[in-house]
Amino acid sequence: MNTSNKSPVALITGGSRGLGRSMALHLAARGVGIILTYRGGVAEAADTVKQIEAAGGKAVALALDVGDTSGFGAFVENVRTELGRHFGRERLDFLVNNAGIGINASFAETTEAQFDALMNVHLKGTFFLTQRLLPVMADGGRILNISTGLTRFAFPGYGAYAAMKAGVEALTRYMAKELGPRGITVNVLAPGPVETDFRGGAIRNSPEMKKALSAQTAFGRVGQADDIGGIVALLLAPESGWVTGQRIEASGGILL
């Protein structure tokens, strides 16, 4: 990982809002420089950067559509440029593959277009973006992929989404095995239900859904963004360097 006296730098995809925003703020509070990506939320991305800088940290926002691999080459060059210009670094220490979309449709009604959209963002995007970023990753660095509790338990309507995330979990183990010689750890974090604006704020805006999900957790509540942001910071801390190839679920003990 970072052996110089400069602070480590993390790249967080989808870091402008929701879970990604919380991850960025928690890591920045620990002295980590942040490169966050956004697809359409320019104002949200700028606000997250402003918050980090107001607290004395360093951050930059870059546009990226993780569902479009044709833009990955130019994006990686932008990352190289910002690493040098903004952080005085040549390598990333941390990569968090967080960006995602949510589509709720039964197995019988899922369209091929919906399937492809989920695959391109969650599985293909994670695979090839990480691949393209490997030359920019520092030896001894960390990669954290974001999955979902829905790979362990099943709620109707999320079959295609969960299938992509199950693929990410399998990919994580292979990445950990193949990148181990470089000292790079690769793990996957699987959040349970979290009250954010994901899927249009489906949990946040539905008292009935929120109550039903809360009743299934050990703590009697759904998660908050900071529950996940804090765990990400812990998994990327120096003390977690012996953990690799693992699935860590952060669900408040749902459906135990």
Rank of each mutant, 00 (worst) to 15 (best):
G125Q: 05
G57R: 11
T3M: 13
G84I: 09
N205T: 13
E53K: 14
A162V: 14
L25T: 09
V243K: 06
V136F: 07
G18I: 03
G230D: 03
G15Y: 11
R21G: 00
S70H: 06
L118R: 08
F198T: 06
E109C: 03
F115D: 08
K210T: 00
L123R: 09
M1K: 14
A55D: 08
L19V: 10
G100V: 04
L213G: 00
A46I: 07
D139C: 09
T111L: 09
E109H: 11
F75K: 02
V60S: 07
Q224K: 12
E195V: 12
F72Q: 04
G223T: 09
P207S: 12
A160P: 00
N145F: 07
A202E: 12
L144N: 09
G71M: 04
A163P: 00
M137C: 05
A202S: 10
T48D: 07
Y161E: 11
N78I: 00
G71C: 01
T217P: 05
R132V: 02
A43W: 00
R39P: 06
A225K: 12
Y158R: 07
L189F: 10
V76T: 07
V42N: 08
A212Y: 11
F219L: 15
L234S: 10
G141D: 01
T111S: 13
F153W: 15
L256Q: 14
G15V: 02
L11N: 02
R85G: 11
A10N: 07
L234G: 02
Q131G: 08
Y38M: 08
S206M: 05
V32S: 05
I248M: 14
P193Y: 15
G56E: 09
L36C: 07
D65G: 02
F107G: 01
R221L: 12
R204Y: 05
E195H: 05
G220Q: 10
G31Q: 11
F87V: 05
G241K: 10
G192N: 05
G245A: 13
R182E: 02
P181L: 09
V76K: 10
G67P: 07
V42K: 12
E208T: 13
R30H: 13
N78F: 00
T217Q: 11
P193S: 12
Y38D: 11
G141E: 01
G159K: 02
W242N: 03
G14L: 01
V243Y: 14
G15D: 06
R17W: 01
A225G: 02
G180P: 06
T13R: 03
P191W: 14
E90N: 15
G229Y: 06
G15R: 05
P191C: 09
G157P: 00
N5I: 12
P135E: 04
G100I: 02
A162K: 06
R132I: 00
R204E: 09
A250C: 13
G167S: 06
E90H: 11
D47C: 08
R85P: 01
R182W: 00
A74I: 07
F219E: 04
F198Y: 13
V222C: 05
V49T: 08
D116L: 14
A170F: 11
D68G: 03
G201I: 07
M137L: 15
G192E: 04
E208G: 01
S214F: 14
L150N: 05
A108Q: 10
Q246P: 02
A176L: 11
F128V: 00
L235G: 02
A45E: 07
A59W: 11
A218D: 08
D65H: 12
H26Q: 12
F115L: 15
S106C: 01
A237L: 08
T126R: 12
P156S: 08
R221C: 04
F127I: 03
R182K: 15
